[in-house]
Design a protein around this nucleic acid. Sequence first.
DNA 1: ATTGAATAGTTCGATTAGTGAACTATTTGG
DNA 2: CCAAATAGTTCACTAATCGAACTATTCAAT
Lengths: 152, 152
Amino acid sequence: MRSVNRDPKSLINRYINAEFTVMKHLFNEIGEAIPEQLTPEQFQILCVIHQRGSCTSTDLADIFKVVKSSITAIVTRLVDRGFIARTRDEEDRRLVVLSLTELGRSIYEQADQKVQDIVASYLVHFDETEVETFIGTYEKLARLMSEGRSRA
Amino acid sequence: MRSVNRDPKSLINRYINAEFTVMKHLFNEIGEAIPEQLTPEQFQILCVIHQRGSCTSTDLADIFKVVKSSITAIVTRLVDRGFIARTRDEEDRRLVVLSLTELGRSIYEQADQKVQDIVASYLVHFDETEVETFIGTYEKLARLMSEGRSRA
DNA sequence: ATTGAATAGTTCGATTAGTGAACTATTTGG
DNA sequence: CCAAATAGTTCACTAATCGAACTATTCAAT
């Protein structure tokens, strides 16, 4: 990307505008579509616990790059609504293991289906190789950012 | 994208994971980098006013897909900090015209430079055609979403 | 074996962003 | 000219986030 410095505005601004627009719309539509009024953050937390089976507050704080007290707050709301169970780990009693309840799993699966539908309804406008290339580049970017912090 | 329905999870989940990861990191880094503690929302509002010269609360509410009272709140904070001026339109006295103060312009330009630097530091890992293809697809997606609401 | 440091999590008080309903002020159109 | 539409604000509420202070537990080093 030699031309970044010669032509700094155009590509980067196009990228930022697209990113903001897409993210805003996606979040809005997901917010509308998700049953039981799950926020995007709540949805993502259920998603991680669903994928892993269980996890801790510290795991979630690392994944989402927020401090642990933020996780406590969100998790408490989800526990109050019966979507998540908090279980003390008997091996290491400092740990609180988070897992989905049956209700939580069911809610997550409904929400996930809606998200799939929304995204699919957009992806249908692209041909397959375009999508694969796009996602490949996107994942590379996500990887760079996750590894990141080593850049200037 | 015929295979979306046959192979529904993989591509869509990869896309969503990448989207969330990238957005999270980008917002975090922008938040850290922006001077004077501008939040991403505040930055985006200054950005729109900077691009347009001036605008109204209703414009901003439309652009960001939020209700007008949200805009009132953010704008009030930016006015309090001296970044934005509210001017009653004498033609149509219902309108409040928002514009950047000198300070606001200066703060925005500093923040914008940091954002450019952050994005450039990632784009440098890609070759130019890859970036152009990626952004092209991204903009197409953003366009579909903006037009959207007409889908199922 | 004891104790001091690290780790896991919560609580509390603050700020920011967002919503919806009720409100004021102005303009417009039948 | 008056009713409806438009523009914006205020208010009370919720969600997410932060940071500092706190409890409880485990680990490590002497």
